[in-house]
Design a protein around this nucleic acid. Structure first.
Length: 768
DNA sequence: AGTGATCAGATTTTT
DNA sequence: TCTGATCACT
């Protein structure tokens, strides 16, 4: 264990070994936060603490998984698997299932995702004849989410004089009533939304003190990662659980708080000391990730924020290259510029695709980069966006799974009751809803009473509904006996979904079919690998589909990559939190996009955008690029864009500007400040001479092949010729393909073997 | 009841 | 540009 400690610096060491009492670790970007958390858990385990007594809350399930893997490596034992480690949502959903009867839910309660909640909300508004323009479903749901994160129940909301007055003043007096209806509707469906998982845990601990005491006793050591992003409801859970032993360690960085829009309360970290007067605070200020230039540039940005804990982030790393700011004419050019730049760096430094990340503010921006990367045949992977589990065909199949597990799941029921078509249309469903309402029954219970059905729907339709019910019931019988894979296969066959999609030979149909197959494969993997969560042993028990459902409900966003090709990463900055890449491109850095138009009128929101920019910049290890376009297609039409204020805010000492020769005025628009023109004074750490560097930039900036000396030569290049490459030395051309700017050559080099080169970039000299 | 066409609205970020 | 919601037609 001492060898482990030797890998830590002084403040890290203290943060790891101070296991008793309340501890707060303020960890600057790249200061080894994850390392401290990992080592702290390893340290506890090594001291003999029972893994079942450690609760470690992370921000994503992926982070939890990776941390467990590292701890296992560190202590050389699978014991770490038994640590209660995961997101607030996954850990407390586990606890809620165990205690579900206390709160009036069943063990198999469904977790509604955003699509489900939106659909619930839409149908409530429709039933109540409420104008969904005034009561925009997203707005209403956001409001309800805020209330739940502040532990305000629907009844409290509806009866609170102040809230009601406030809602009236924004002309939305019905919000309280809608909230009540929404809660009743979820309850009736035996379903919890994401906020309920936290809210109901609070209810459990409030109303069942013996349960609270049990968990207080169970979790002797509590760790919370990304503490700056917790909301009030989460904060209170932690506070209650830690109350008896106070062995609580929170780790975070106020400068990286970027989830206030989701209810995160930055005060949780700023006020932590008030709750625990004995608090010991450690600050991790040495950055191990980035070059000096990046650290300094990031510091100069974040200094513009008023609300923050004082800290001094520094690094011993090399000075590095300046942050390069690139102007392009359009979003399409932005895409090709970035793709070309990646291609070039790959060639020049022999880098892998996974050394690069493209970070943007909104998911919608990914398109131009996808297209440009595809044109250069650079593999990429988009994180976030439309995840696998959100695809229509997948949700349809999941609808069956869900209904079989929980028959009261109305969202699932409505989705599949007529898919594939079986003659139960919209009118029938509406009649069912009305009838169930009148008889004060749940829809599923009503559907089992054939007399009621006949009365409400007529004989012919009643039979169809009855057949549907019989089918679902037959699935329910199989659920407990078949393993997940066999069961899922049975469902897609018995319902006709498989045949339905197999018959569809359009490209979309084929892709849907393949997605279903992929899901079945995923389920197969699941049902074959059994890891006992209590002991960590693998067993041969069958894993049933309801277990699968529990697993995926909260993992819907961590889609796993199926092949292991190294790829360029494309993601939003939010999704990039906690990650690092050698080369980072922050793109679309324009006013009204980043910062986003909705945030520029409020100081707190603007500060959050600035923190977001800080997070983006501090993802980079070696080199950061910032790009913006002067024109961009937004919702179909071309709009003019101005560079973001954040570009101005970086201390000019740490940046270099690149733009095409400005044909109309200063490249900085009408900006009053004098801006440095193209400035290339950065002390390059690589071997480029300034002249080569300029040439490189020119290449980056040109979309079409820039005709340089080499390129004119290249026109005459043919198979069999001897060539010389700047980096690889002498070689022989084996093959040529493509034409114009996309002309490629396969060359065998004496030094490194066979390489494929895009002639536009490869600085080849013809020798013979 | 089911299908196809037309039109409006969307873009902030996510467990 | 793309998705979904609504409407008209079969």
């Amino acid at each position: 264990m001492d060898t482990i400690l030797s890998k830590l610096n002084e403040p890290q060491k203290s943060a790891v070994t101070q296991t008793e009492g309340p501890v707060m670790v303020i960890a600057g970007a790249g200061s080894g936060k994850t390392r401290v958390l990992t080592y702290r858990v390893a340290w506890l385990l090594n001291k003999g603490v029972d893994p079942f007594q450690i609760l470690a809350l992370t921000f994503t399930n992926k982070a939890a998984f990776e941390m467990k893997e590292r701890i296992i490596e560190l202590i050389g034992s699978n014991e770490a698997r038994n640590v209660w480690m995961g997101t607030f949502h996954s850990i407390f959903s586990r606890i809620l299932r165990a205690e579900s009867d206390k709160l009036g839910y069943s063990f198999n309660f469904t977790i509604y995702d955003k699509d489900d909640t939106k659909s619930v909300m839409r149908s409530i508004l429709k039933e109540q004849n409420i104008d969904n323009k005034v009561y925009n479903p997203d707005f209403v749901l956001h409001r309800i989410s805020q209330a739940k994160s502040s532990l305000i129940s629907a009844n409290e909301y509806a009866n609170n004089v102040e809230i009601q007055a406030q809602d009236k003043s924004i002309n939305k007096p019905l919000l309280g009533m809608i909230y009540q209806l929404y809660v009743a509707r979820c309850k009736r469906s035996d379903a919890m939304d994401f906020d309920d998982l936290i809210y109901n845990t609070n209810l459990l601990f409030r109303d069942f003190p013996e349960a609270l005491v049990r968990y207080q006793h169970k979790f002797n050591y509590i760790l919370v990662d990304e503490y700056q992003d917790t909301n009030y409801a989460q904060y209170l859970i932690i506070k209650k659980l830690a109350a008896s032993h106070e062995n609580i360690c929170v780790v975070g960085d106020d400068a990286q708080s970027i989830y206030a829009f989701r209810g995160a309360n930055i005060q949780n970290i700023l006020n932590f000391k008030n709750d625990y007067p004995e608090l010991i605070t450690f600050k991790l200020e040495q950055n191990y990730r980035s070059t000096q230039n990046i650290v300094n540039a990031a510091n100069s940005i974040i200094a513009k924020n008023k609300q923050q804990i004082a800290k001094n982030i520094w690094t011993q790393n090399e000075e590095g290259q300046k942050v390069t700011i690139i102007r392009t004419a359009s979003d399409a050019e932005e895409g090709s510029t970035v793709a070309n730049s990646i291609f070039e760096s790959k060639m020049n430094y022999q880098l892998q695709n996974d050394a690069f990340a493209i970070l943007y503010r909104t998911n919608a921006q990914s398109r131009s980069f996808e297209e440009a990367l595809r044109r250069l045949s650079i593999p990429y992977r988009i994180y976030g966006g439309l995840s696998f589990y959100k695809r229509k065909e997948i949700k349809d199949v999941l609808g069956y799974f869900r209904l079989v597990v929980n028959q009261y799941d109305e969202e699932a029921l409505f989705r599949i009751i007529n898919y594939p078509a079986r003659g139960i249309g919209k009118t029938t469903v509406e009649k069912l809803i009305v009838e169930a309402d009148q008889r004060q029954m749940k829809i599923w219970d009503l559907m089992q009473n054939i007399q009621y059905l006949q009365k409400a729907l007529g004989n012919a339709t009643a039979i169809k509904v009855d057949e549907f019910v019989t089918k679902i019931k037959s699935f329910m019988v199989l659920l407990k006996t078949k393993n997940a894979f066999d069961f899922a296969k049975h469902i897609v066959n018995a319902t006709g979904i498989f045949k339905d999609l197999n018959d569809d030979k359009t490209p979309e149909g084929i892709s849907r079919f393949e997605n279903i197959e992929e899901m079945l494969n995923g389920i197969k993997d699941f049902s074959e690998i059994e890891v006992n969560i209590e002991t960590g042993e693998t067993q041969n028990n069958i894993r049933t589909l309801d277990e699968y459902m529990l697993e995926i409900a909260l993992y819907a966003n961590d889609e796993k990559d199926t092949d292991d090709t190294r790829k360029v990463s494309l993601m939003t900055i939010h999704a990039a939190k906690g990650l690092e890449f050698p080369y980072v491109y922050i793109v679309g850095v324009e006013e009204n996009l980043f910062p986003s138009a909705q945030t520029v009128n409020s100081r707190t929101e603007l500060e959050e955008e600035r923190r977001l920019f800080y997070v983006a910049l501090t993802r980079s290890q070696k080199k950061a690029f910032i790009t913006y376009a002067e024109n961009r297609y937004r919702w179909g039409s071309l709009t003019f864009c101005e560079p973001s204020r954040f570009i101005d805010e970086i201390d000019s000492e740490y940046v270099e500007y690149i733009g095409k020769p400005n044909s109309f005025g200063s490249p900085w628009g009408s900006s009053q400040k004098t801006k440095p023109e193209v400035k290339l004074t950065g002390q390059a750490i690589n071997s480029f001479t300034p002249r080569e560097k300029l040439k490189k930039l020119n290449t980056i900036l040109s979309n079409s092949a820039a005709p340089s000396e080499e390129n004119t030569d290249i026109e005459s290049l043919q198979v069999g010729m001897e060539v010389e490459h700047l980096r690889f030395g002498k070689g022989k051309v084996l093959q040529m393909e493509g034409s114009g700017p996309n002309k490629k050559a396969t060359v065998f080099f004496n030094s490194v073997g066979q390489k494929q080169l895009l002639l536009k970039f490869a600085k080849l000299k013809i020798l013979s």
